[in-house]
Design a binder for these strands. Sequence first.
DNA 1: GTGGTCTAGACCACT
DNA 2: GTGGTCTAGACCACT
Lengths: 130, 130, 130, 130
Amino acid sequence: MRLDPKSHVPIYLQIVEGIKASVASGVIREGEVLPSVRALALDVHVNPNTVQRAYEELERQGITFARRGRGMFVAKMGKRNATEKAEQALRLEFVRILDRARDSSLKRDRVESLFQQAMTKAFRKAGKLE
Amino acid sequence: MRLDPKSHVPIYLQIVEGIKASVASGVIREGEVLPSVRALALDVHVNPNTVQRAYEELERQGITFARRGRGMFVAKMGKRNATEKAEQALRLEFVRILDRARDSSLKRDRVESLFQQAMTKAFRKAGKLE
Amino acid sequence: MRLDPKSHVPIYLQIVEGIKASVASGVIREGEVLPSVRALALDVHVNPNTVQRAYEELERQGITFARRGRGMFVAKMGKRNATEKAEQALRLEFVRILDRARDSSLKRDRVESLFQQAMTKAFRKAGKLE
Amino acid sequence: MRLDPKSHVPIYLQIVEGIKASVASGVIREGEVLPSVRALALDVHVNPNTVQRAYEELERQGITFARRGRGMFVAKMGKRNATEKAEQALRLEFVRILDRARDSSLKRDRVESLFQQAMTKAFRKAGKLE
DNA sequence: GTGGTCTAGACCACT
DNA sequence: GTGGTCTAGACCACT
């Protein structure tokens, strides 16, 4: 999981996004257990409370559920929920950054070209590692 | 200028982005004066200190320069700087959100389709207002 | 026995309540033996330690008593104790939730109506099953 | 605001309930500001973080909204939301405690009588103080 | 001063 | 060991 300490997005929300991606892509399957709060905290070098907060948010979003003393599990509709939220988030991001590009009078062709470059980069990487 | 109080991006940086877009698109031209701190503060319903921080940041980025008692002016090369930064920011945003889309196993076609929808929306709006 | 893993009431206390109801209603009679810790634990999908805690609490409340190697038995006066505690608990619950309803400015008539609906539902069910 | 340290309901949720009652009853009106996190923390003798958590939950439930540097305000539909949630909570509480009363074989008449006593007590108090 | 995030560390219920 | 709540205290963005 990649956490960016310089980002304005709070760390706990970056963790939420990371786990959601893992659930959406099937890296963690429905019914499977997430890493424990303490284990993940050690792993990503943040305080356990910060992970705890991320886990609460995931439960609230219907991606996971908690079982006392057992751990945190991916919910039945977790994959579907996570995928839908990922698409919705992507759509909103596109709208936000393209609105700004337009306001900056960037040329439509130029925007298209930057997008295609990023696509190639992102989906080429996918084919190789991870 | 659109400010989102719920965004994780600090308001002063949102103001910076808005002004950079105005400079990049020529709404404010090189050598022209920006609205006064107080005027803009009243306009966007924000504390003058917040606008002040935004203006300092713009100067730091070489988009504008200050003349004591006269105001804040768009620098020579301000438009070019603003446009370059807008492109660079867009490129980084694309990489960031497409990486996440890939990690979420969103289909390449689906991502392309969401992008085209947002493009149409953004650049259709551009033709009409603002 | 209905256990709610999402409830803020600890599971061992939920078990205590469930058994008290069984004793109060005569489902388990005075002198009769309770299910073994292990049997009940398997039945309600809970760790034996949790059932053990519930049984200790029941003994402390004078509802049951333990016989080493024999099991847990309903005490003489167990039914009466359980019934009295059930009434007392109900009274306290009523006071608590009606105080809150009043603080929320819910109308007296509305509260009365919600109560009657719940009564009908609870005591109709009673006529049929269990 | 009455907080019960012996309750199994977490303190932060007790605070949520207390504020919701104040909003539902109009003690705090729509658009008005809530006590600051620090002020309320001092008032009810809990840690500011605990109040903060309650305020996050209130915002999530659509009762309030936050303005950076300004404070926490009652939302436009806050009163309605709070009242609806209060009714729903009451209904669920009734169902829960009446189911248990039935399982304990309490007589219907007896339950009715305990309820009426609590009603009189709660709504008499309302007429006098607060 | 006001809300929001984070660290550090304690204690609890449950496994 | 596992999640959930709470205290104590720091720092940030905004007013």
